[in-house]
Amino acid sequence: MKLSRDMAEFQARLGHEFADPSLLVRALTHSSMSSPNRDDNQRLEFLGDRVLGLVMAEALLAHDSAATEGQLAPRFNALVRKEACADVAREVDLGTVLKLGRSEMLSGGRRKMALLGDAMEAVIAAVYVDAGFEAARAMVLRLWGGRIGAVKEDARDAKTALQEWAQARGLPPPDYAETARSGPDHAPVFTIEARLQSGEHVSATAGSKRQAEQAAAAALLSKLKSD
C-alpha cells in the first residue's frame, strides 16, 4: 500500500516509517468513516492508551528516582490524559490527515480535542503493532519531549483540584451548569458555571463542554486562592 503525499509527510513528522502503511491509515480513520471494508481506529486507540501509559510510567520513574507514588501519580495523569494527547497531535498536525465522515468534518472534527487525542493514541498503537514496543517508546519520548521533565508537581486537572479543595473543607463536590450556548450547530460555544455550595461561582466559555468545565474550575480555583 502506497501512502498519499499528505500521509507520507505525516509519517515523516512522526519519525517512523511504517512497514505496513495500512496500520497508519487505520489509526487515522474515525468511526464516522468506517465501513465493512474500512476499519476505524477504536481498537488501536484502546491499545495505544496502554502503550502510552507504560512509556510514561517508565519515563517518570527514570526522570525522578526519589519521587513517591503520590508525587508520580498526578504527573502521570497529566501526561497521558486526552488533553495532552491532543496537544501532541496538534504539534504534528494530525488533524490534517484525520479521516472523518461528512458530519464530523462539518462539525469541526479536525479541531476536536477528543478526536485528536483518540487518534494520537491509535497512532501510538499502530507503531507498536508495526515495529514493536521499542519503536513506539522511541516515538512517544520524542513527541512528548520536554513535557516529562516540565510536568508540574501539582499536575491535577482543574476539576479534580477544585473537588479536592471542596472536600478538604467539608463541602460537597462542585456543580457545573450550562448557562448559555451560542454559535452554529457545527461549531457550538458553551458557557459553563462552576458552583460551590458555599456560594462561590465562576463562568467560562469554550468550544466544548469539557473544556468549558475545566476552564471554569481553573478560574474558580484562582479566585478562591486570591480571596
Rank of each mutant, 00 (worst) to 15 (best):
Q167D: 10
G95K: 00
L47V: 14
F46C: 06
G101M: 05
V123I: 05
F133D: 00
V51L: 04
M120D: 03
R111V: 07
T68C: 07
I124N: 04
V80N: 08
V51W: 01
E164W: 10
T96E: 14
A57P: 02
R43L: 12
A122D: 03
T160F: 06
A67T: 04
M56L: 13
E69R: 13
G145Y: 01
G109N: 05
V88D: 07
R156K: 11
E153I: 05
E58Y: 04
E58K: 02
T179V: 13
G146K: 08
D118K: 11
R50P: 02
V97E: 04
N41D: 07
K152H: 10
V51N: 02
D64R: 09
G53M: 04
D154S: 08
R43F: 12
G117T: 03
E91S: 15
G95M: 03
D154T: 08
V55I: 04
L171Q: 15
R50M: 09
A138W: 01
L98Q: 00
N77L: 12
V129F: 02
A166I: 11
A62F: 03
L100G: 01
V55S: 00
L98S: 04
P173C: 06
L116F: 05
A136T: 02
L72F: 07
E104D: 14
T68W: 09
L141M: 11
A158T: 09
P74T: 06
A161P: 02
Q71S: 14
E178M: 15
E178L: 15
G70Y: 05
A166Y: 15
E178I: 15
E153K: 09
V97N: 03
R90G: 11
A114K: 15
D175S: 15
V92M: 03
L61A: 12
L94K: 05
A119P: 02
R142K: 13
D40L: 08
A150T: 04
C85V: 00
G53Q: 08
R90Y: 06
V151H: 05
A131P: 13
A114C: 09
M113S: 15
E121T: 06
L141P: 12
K159M: 13
Q163V: 14
L106E: 14
L143K: 05
M113Y: 11
E153L: 08
E134R: 08
A135E: 12
L72M: 14
E134H: 05
E91L: 11
D49P: 03
N41W: 01
L54V: 06
R147N: 04
A161K: 14
G117F: 01
K82Y: 10
R38T: 10
E83N: 11
L141R: 10
A66C: 08
L98K: 01
D130F: 00
M113T: 15
S103W: 11
E134C: 01
S103K: 13
A177I: 15
V127T: 03
R147C: 03
D39Y: 06
E153F: 03
A126R: 06
L79V: 08
V80P: 12
V92I: 13
K159S: 13
R43D: 13
M113E: 14
E134Y: 02
A57H: 00
D49L: 13
R102I: 04
K112W: 00
S107L: 09
R142L: 00
R81H: 14
A177D: 15
V92P: 05
L94C: 11
A125W: 03
L115F: 11
G145L: 00
R90P: 06
D130H: 02
V140I: 07
R38V: 13
E178N: 10
A125H: 01
T96W: 12
L162D: 13
Y176P: 09
D64V: 01
P174V: 10
